[in-house]
Amino acid sequence: MTGTILGAADINRALTRIAHEIVERNDGADRIVLLGILTRGVPLAERLAERIATVEPDWDAQERTGALDITMYRDDLFKNPTRTIGTTSVPDAGIDDAVVVLVDDVFHTGRTIRAALDALRDLGRPAAVQLAVLVDRGHRELPIRADYVGKNIPTSRSERVNVHLEELDGEDAVILRKGE
C-alpha cells in the first residue's frame, strides 16, 4: 500500500493521544522536557507541548521545549556527503533530573535515537529519557524502542516514508513511497 497513509486529521488525533499518554505515564507534566530532533521532530515537539499545556495549565510550553541537532553524533558521518549542522536549543533550566521526551517523525533503524542519546549525555543527566514518534516503520538495527507511537506502518526496507508538516512543507501528511 502506497500513497498518503495519514492525513492532517489523523496526525492531529495521534498527537493529541500521545500528549495525553505522556502526561498520564509521568503522573503529570512537572518534570517533562520535550526535545524535538531536527528537522521535523521540532514542530512535532512544539505541537505536543501546546497540547500538554492545555491539559496542564501550569506547565510552560515555551520554557520546556527545545530542539536537538544530532549531526555531530551520527555514526555515518564519513559515509555521506557533509551535513550542515543545525541549532540545538535546550531550555534555560537545562535537562538535569528532568524526564526528557525525545520527539521524532519517523522511527526506523534506531541510529538517530542512539545519536540523540549520546548528544543528551553531553547536555546533562536527565532522570529518564522517553521516545515519542509519529510513525514507526520498523527495521530496527539497534535495541531501541519507542514509548509513544503515533502509528505503526509496516514497510519494506526499500520503501520511503515522507512526513510533511504544515510548518515546513505547507501540509500535514505521511506519505509512503515505493523504493527504486
Binding site: 520554557e63 527545545g66 530542539a67 535546550v90 531550555p91
Partner: peptide, 14 residues
C-alpha cells in the same frame, strides 16, 4: 526562547 542553556548564549548564535 531557549538559547543553549547558559545565559548569554540566548541571542547569540540564534
Amino acid at each position: 526562547s531557549g538559547g543553549s542553556g547558559h545565559g548569554e548564549a540566548g541571542d547569540r548564535g540564534g
